[in-house]
Amino acid sequence: MTRKQKRLAVIAGGMSFILVAVLLVMFAFSQSVAYFFMPADLAKADVKPGTRIRLGGLVAEGSVKRSQGSTVSFTVTDGTGSVPVTYTGILPDLFREGQGVVTEGAFDAASHGFVADSVLAKHDENYMPKEVADRLKAQGVWNEGQGNQGQGSGTKGTATR
């Protein structure tokens, strides 16, 4: 091979690596990206059972029920709609009734309930999960100052332990 051909081969090698990376990124986006929904959206959107989504909203007051083992069921609501959710595992420390939550999982084909495999609550008491806060504010169900008032009921939530 001449020097020119060698150089071309190197450039072609580099370009094909980049091409592979781009294809991989596009493939991964089509496979593993979870869209965010709130209960009200689900009425409009057609989410097939088994599709991974993120479901966010407020944990409805009085909806948290613990069955045997570590399975917990609760309802996620946004004032308009509500979705029953089951989750097996340990809930985050700041998971409370009446507070914001984001769950990730898929709808179950048989029970039509939402089965979550991860539940995210807030890192501290000062904020709601951002996606949830944006939407609830837009709908007027919740506003920024309310986080602090929520603390009273939050303490009650932790007291049930």
């Binding site: 990376a21 991964a28 593993s32 990730e104």
Partner: peptide, 14 residues
């Protein structure tokens, strides 16, 4: 305005 989350599966794959 669409909200998505890109998590561990994406990064592990790419």
């Amino acid at each position: 305005g669409e909200k998505i989350s890109v998590g561990a599966p994406f990064f592990n794959m790419t």
